[in-house]
Structures are given as C-alpha cells and as structure tokens.
C-alpha cells in the first residue's frame, strides 16, 4: 500500500477511468452479442405486423401508444390508471381494488 495519500488517490482515479473504459467496452461488446435477440424481436414485429413494444400492459393507450385514441381519457378497464397528470390525483376507488388487479 503506497504511503502517500496522493499516490493512493491517483491509483483510485486510474482504476475508475479503467472501469469507465471497461463499461464502454462492455456496452460495445453487448451490442454485438445481443444482435441475435434484436434480430428475433425485429422478426416478430415483421411477421405479426406489430406496431408497438410490449412495455406496459395496464392500459391500452400505454400498451399501444401508436394506435391509441387521441387524448381520450378513461378508455380502459376499471383498474387502469390515467397517465395524464390529473389522473395521479384521483386514486382507484376502493370497491374496484377488491378485484384481481391488486
């Protein structure tokens, strides 16, 4: 262990810079190695003629934002949450929470 604090700090900085380079390298290598998965997702989109990613499934305007109605609120099943700011002020009524959505 080096006795000078400055030496220790420089070692710490060099390690951090090396790790950031490693991070960039890992990102680059991951992109090459996940090419197959990406190709498979593209193939699914093409074969099934899909227009959206399956990221959120709680409301249809979030599941298919591309095909959603233009600014039509409360258009889904009763447990769906609004994604407009006003929706966050109005919680789900308690009698609806007893359903399977919890």
């Amino acid at each position: 262990m080096p006795s000078r604090m400055s030496t220790r700090f420089v070692i710490f900085l060099v390690t951090c810079v090396a790790l950031v380079w490693g991070m960039l390298l890992h990102a680059h290598m991951s992109r090459s190695s996940t090419g197959h998965a990406l190709q498979e997702r593209r193939e699914v989109i093409r074969r099934f003629q899909l227009s959206d990613l399956c990221l959120f499934t709680d409301a249809r305007y979030i599941r298919h934002p591309v095909a959603a109605d233009l600014h039509t609120p409360f258009q889904d099943y009763p447990l769906s949450m609004e994604h407009f700011p006003s929706g966050s002020l109005m919680p789900v009524p308690p009698h609806l929470r007893r359903g399977g959505g919890e």
Binding site: H36, R41, R63
Partner: peptide
C-alpha cells in the same frame, strides 16, 4: 421465445 418478450410478452 424469451428473446422476443419485449415485443410479444402479452400477445
């Protein structure tokens, strides 16, 4: 397949 989950998890 698991690889395509981002496109068809709920399909």
């Amino acid at each position: 397949t698991a690889e395509s989950e981002l496109a068809n998890a709920d399909l």
